[in-house]
Nucleic acid binder design. Structure first.
Length: 515
RNA sequence: GGCCCCAUCGUCUAGUGGCCUAGGACACUACCCUCUCAAGGUAGAGACACGGGUUCGAAUCCCGUUGGGGCUGCCA
């Protein structure tokens, strides 16, 4: 795939205009996991191109912006790609790596210099700050080296010569016109001293070279869009062939930021943002994509549940919201629960697989029983919002030593005056009754009548004795699946514990350490 | 500090000058269903930030205020 990078050059401009192609790109930097904001950006880029495909031509490019050697790591690139695939966001071309295209940026930078559109600068950050302070100027580059005629040399950066007059207008499909006076734009650096291009240069050159028609990205990029436009014009107007210079700027679309509860931009340092983390927690990709799509956009008609195909059909970039959106894990979980309940049982088991064994499961591999699981799965499927809820809910089916929740025991058994009575009568009945859900149910109903309590009250001590918790899948189905032996044993154990004043502490974690 | 963006229930949103007594969803409360928990059902509470215009009429258009956010690197 690297081989393609260098020779990226698609069809002729004229053909493209004729064909009305719409081309977007998602350009992550591999300095961390794919985060939810990036995922949404990728999704929107994907949606518009896939829709364009239906009426003509659309192409979605994946471009890895790995020009900063210090920060990039191959594993991040891999992770980002895997996460995109997991979400079902597929690209038509790429991935292209900027690190494979450095010559291109170098050439363009040289041409900018030769045409006196950029200059070399040897100021250090400290010097710039000091001068600004002395002249009580705001931070930013003071154009100190603009007329010094410096040549390239070690320690020098190349700066773009921003016109001091006029204004630059960003035409944004979702925000309208954003006008910035050129004089407030500093002469920004475009090449580092080590000959590597800076983001704004490489990004602009690639968007030109790859003939991107729509630049769809986060709002944090809006402030440097005027720089992109200035660069674009410099590269086109004075440097390129006549054909290329006719090319219009791409259409820009700056998406509202995804924010945390404090309404700050989601950051990987302080917020949970990695798509992978949500996957590991048991979120389904289709739920994630669906939820993400709704952050900043809605199809109208009070509709919320959409699959990718429907999104492609309905998505409209011009109707994207302008205000930042809070990423609400609760609502995501709700979506996920709905998607899980819609799964057929085979897919449910397939997706649940990681939570059925070590390290996510609380039981050992040897304790797992597929026959039991296949009976249990339908009961569990209706009751979890994420897969990570499976181990605590289903543990009692597989574990020999069922962890006892102290609160449950204290409330429903130890602190309950009729619990011993219930357990003893249950034991007697369940030792010899027919082993059938209906019969198991009937037996406890009868005991409830005898004691003069509601079944709802009576089931609590029995449930805790058998499952270790007050909540869980339906009790009689569970008992039926578990079998007489285990049920009777657990009731017996509970009776003994009541009599000996058993007091559970924290759930027993020692088993896990042995694995 | 400078530049820029934004503003409908707590949250995500519908709404593009009359259909708005502002709709839906999550979360919340109550009730129903019920062997627990979920799910489901019913009901409830809950918003157009503020002030000026424009207009017969404004959540919707304009201006200002306030509040929030982003950017301000030899990061992307």
């Amino acid at each position: 795939m690297h081989a393609l990078s260098k020779q990226f050059r698609l069809s002729r401009i004229a053909d493209l205009v004729e064909a009305k192609i719409l081309r977007t790109r998602f350009a992550p930097s591999p300095t961390g996991y794919l985060h939810v904001g990036g995922a949404r950006t990728a999704l929107y880029n994907y949606l518009v191109t896939q829709k364009a495909k239906k009426d003509g031509l659309g192409e979605f490019i994946l471009r890895i912006e790995d020009t900063d050697e210090e920060r990039n790591r191959d594993e991040w690139t891999k992770g980002i790609i895997e996460s995109l695939k997991w979400l079902g966001i597929d690209w038509d071309l790429g991935p292209f790596f900027q690190s494979q295209r450095l010559d291109l940026y170098k050439e363009s930078a040289d041409r900018l210099f030769q045409n006196e559109l950029s200059y070399w600068c040897d100021c250090t950050r400290e010097e710039i700050d000091r001068r600004n302070k002395e002249n009580s100027r705001p931070p930013g580059y003071d154009r100190f080296c603009r007329d010094r005629g410096l040549d390239q040399a070690p320690g020098r950066v190349l700066r773009f010569m921003v016109p001091s007059e006029g204004k630059t207008t960003v035409n944004d499909v979702i925000r309208g016109e954003v006008v910035v006076e050129n004089r407030v734009i500093e002469d920004f650096a475009i090449m580092k001293a080590n000959n590597a291009p800076l983001f704004v240069l490489a990004n602009t050159i690639d968007d030109i070279d790859m003939e991107i028609t729509h630049v769809i990205r986060g709002e944090e990029h809006l402030p440097n869009t005027p720089k992109v436009i200035l660069l674009w014009q410099a590269l086109h107007g004075k440097l390129d062939s006549a054909a290329d210079s006719q090319r219009a700027l791409p259409t820009f679309a700056h998406l509202p930021l995804l924010v945390n509860e404090q309404r700050q931009k989601l950051s990987k340092r302080r917020d949970k943002v990695a798509v992978e983390d949500y996957r590991d927690q048991g979120i389904l990709p289709e739920a994630m994509v669906n939820y993400l799509a709704l952050l900043g956009w809605g199809p109208g008609n009070d509709r919320e549940f959409l699959n990718l195909q429907e999104m492609i059909e309905l998505f409209d970039l011009t109707k994207v919201n302008l205000a930042p959106a809070f990423f609400d894990e609760k609502k995501l979980a709700h979506f996920n629960g709905t998607y899980i309940r819609d799964l057929d049982i085979d897919r449910f088991t397939l997706e649940a697989r990681p939570w059925l064994s070590y390290p996510k499961a609380t039981w050992a591999e040897s304790d797992f029983d597929l026959t039991i699981w296949s009976q249990v799965a339908p009961l569990i499927k209706e009751r979890v919002a994420t897969f990570s809820e499976i181990p605590p809910m289903a543990g009692f089916f597989f574990l020999n030593d069922v962890p006892m929740d102290p609160d449950a025991w204290n409330k429903a058994v130890a602190g309950n005056e009729f619990s011993l009575d219930v357990l003893e009568r249950s034991l007697e009945y369940y030792q010899k009754c027919e082993w059938d859900t209906q019969v198991l149910h009937l037996g406890l109903s009868n005991i409830a009548d005898t004691i003069g309590k509601k079944l709802g009250k009576i089931q609590a001590p029995l449930r805790v004795a058998i499952t270790g918790r007050t909540v869980g899948p339906p009790l009689f189905e569970s008992m039926c699946i578990l079998g007489r032996g285990k049920v009777v044993n657990r009731i017996g154990l509970a009776i003994e514990r009541v009599k000996t004043g058993y007091s559970p502490t924290e759930p027993n974690q020692s088993k896990e350490l042995e694995n």
